[in-house]
Amino acid sequence: MTIPKPSPADARPRVSAGRRAIRTGVFGGFRRTTVWYAFVLPPFALLVLFVCLPTAQTFVEGFYRETGPDQRQFVGLDQFANLGTTGVFWDALINTVLLGVAFLALVIPLAAILSAMLNHVRRGATALKVIYFLPQLTSSVAVALIFLYVFQPDWGLLNGFLHILGIDDVPLWLADPSFGLTGSRAAVTLLAVWSGLGYFILIFLAGIQSIPVELYESAAVDGATPLQIWRHITLPGLRPTIIFLVMTGSFDAMARFGDLWTLGGPSGSPARTLQSIVMLMYQVGFVSHDTNQAAAIAVVFFVIMLVLTVVAYRAFLSREFKARS
């Protein structure tokens, strides 16, 4: 087969055709993908409208003070300085962190153990998973209303049960502002664990089932005990799962609101022990009508969450990504 030698006259048109082909390729590709950009546009527009713009506006509001209808005064960092000197803000922040840490410290080991046990259940595993997960599907306000009766000290379900067991000196739960294991903080932590356990179990279960079976088989051949297998295979294999749950669980715990508001009311009763940072933000903004101060709280909260994310990424996630690549 002979290939005709291109004449000098043919050369220019051939180059142009190449460029045209590239251009056509780029624009053709763009045209072909336009439709997908169009699909992305509505949710993106909604994200900008309902998340990005309000977030930006919140940052701006934190630097102002309302002085009248449609009037405001730039006050610089005053709103933030006020927060720093307000004991109520620090109490709410400490409460939020305490409740979050207590929740994670309970729910993660409990979910890890239950998921490992569930993994060995041969009959009824699906039914058990559904039962564990059901509270997660229930509205947090509805759950809180039910637990209001569960924890009621005088005629509640839990203390009624304790009375049946012969315990007369029953805990006061939501009427006790102490830090103890039977105080209001302990009660709402139990509520959160009951409500969130199913989700944590399912994620752990997925993590356990992603660990290669061969590892377990080798360990069995080597004569490892179940505890050794758990310690040296299951737990290390669950590291990414635990990191994921600690991170997402921390964010959820920090942003906790619905159930605490229902149980504690606007002042986080009893004695502000149930007032989280988001509750304080809501109370200041929508009960006391100081939207600028509430915006300052929101900005501080945003920064805390951002720092938490960056620290968690640097400490755990970046290493996970590197290990996987």
């Binding site: 109520v88 502002p177 002042s267 009763s269 009893p270 004695a271 502000r272 109370q283 200041v284 006391s288």
Partner: peptide, 15 residues
């Protein structure tokens, strides 16, 4: 805020 301050402290006293 004065209402919530008073309510919180009243609760602490009642407890």
């Amino acid at each position: 805020q004065p209402r919530f301050a008073l309510q919180a402290q009243l609760e602490a006293a009642l407890a």
